[in-house]
């Protein structure tokens, strides 16, 4: 940076400090931001990320899920998903499989992640009552979920206490043992065990950074062609002036 441009920067820099200072949004307003990485459980091979932005009593959940069971009875597989609350705030290990059938059932995982606090439904009710409504579930192997809803006090308290855990349910029965394939769900006896058992789990923790959206617009393009447009203009100007000087010289010679 040469001296001249450095000087030009000063007003812009000063203005930037005044106008652009924001501070972590959640620090000043009492709002909060949480995030978690969704890891495979029960051998689902899925993965995902989830963030929860809390503003007053409103929560915005943004979630991306990939690699889950794709179909169920020939239709997109319904993956019910919840924020579980009020226990250790952990994802269960295989030690939680107390009946030894090779599957950590939703009930077996509860000492780690607790009961349902909020159902991450695609519409309508977000209370625990909607917890096993397959029509409101995430659908298919891969999906994005983004919803803003009113946060209940119990889930809000669990988020603050660091004990909230996002659990996505629904396993591919083909990955289970024969006994587990035939077993009924511990939650909804009319469904197979695979349908309601945890497939992804991620403990939510307070975000260290307030996550901005998308990429970053950090280029103007003036070097993209390899050319410096300012210098090019100077060069062109000088060449034009040189042409002018030649014309003047010719005129002077012609007069002589």
């Amino acid at each position: 940076m040469n001296k001249k441009t450095a000087l030009w920067c000063v007003p812009a820099f000063a203005l930037g400090v005044v106008v652009l200072t924001g501070g972590p949004a959640f620090a000043a307003t009492g709002d909060a931001s949480y995030q978690g990485t969704l890891d495979a459980i029960n051998g689902s091979n899925g993965s995902g990320t989830v963030s929860v932005e809390v503003s007053g009593d409103q929560a915005t959940v943004t979630q991306t899920v990939t690699g889950l069971a794709e179909t169920f009875d020939g239709k997109p597989y319904p993956h019910v998903q919840h924020i579980h609350i009020g226990a250790k705030g952990e994802c269960p290990t295989t030690a939680a499989d107390t009946n030894g059938d090779g599957v950590i059932s939703t009930t077996e995982g509860q000492p780690s992640y607790g009961e349902i606090g909020t159902t991450l439904s695609t519409s309508g009710d977000t209370s625990p009552a909607a917890g096993t409504d397959l029509t409101l579930a995430g659908m298919g192997a891969n999906y994005d979920y983004n919803r803003t809803f009113t946060l209940d006090a119990a889930t809000a308290a669990s988020l603050e206490a660091g004990t909230a855990v996002v659990v996505v349910h629904g396993l591919d029965p083909a990955t289970l043992t024969k006994a587990a394939q035939d077993a009924k769900s511990d939650l909804v006896p009319s469904l197979p065990l695979a349908a309601t058992s945890p497939a992804l789990c991620g403990a939510l923790s307070e975000s260290q950074a307030n996550m901005p959206d998308g990429g970053v617009g950090t280029g103007g393009g003036s070097t993209s062609s390899g050319a410096d447009m300012g210098l090019l203009a100077l060069g062109a100007g000088a060449l034009t002036a040189a042409g002018g000087a030649v014309v003047i010289r010719r005129r002077l010679i012609a007069r002589g």
Partner: peptide, 26 residues
Amino acid sequence: ATAAAVLLFTIGCTATGFALWGNPPP
């Protein structure tokens, strides 16, 4: 005028040259 033309031509070519080749894409 001749001197001015030569000088300006030199500046013009040098500046244009630097401009075109002085900033390869990042």
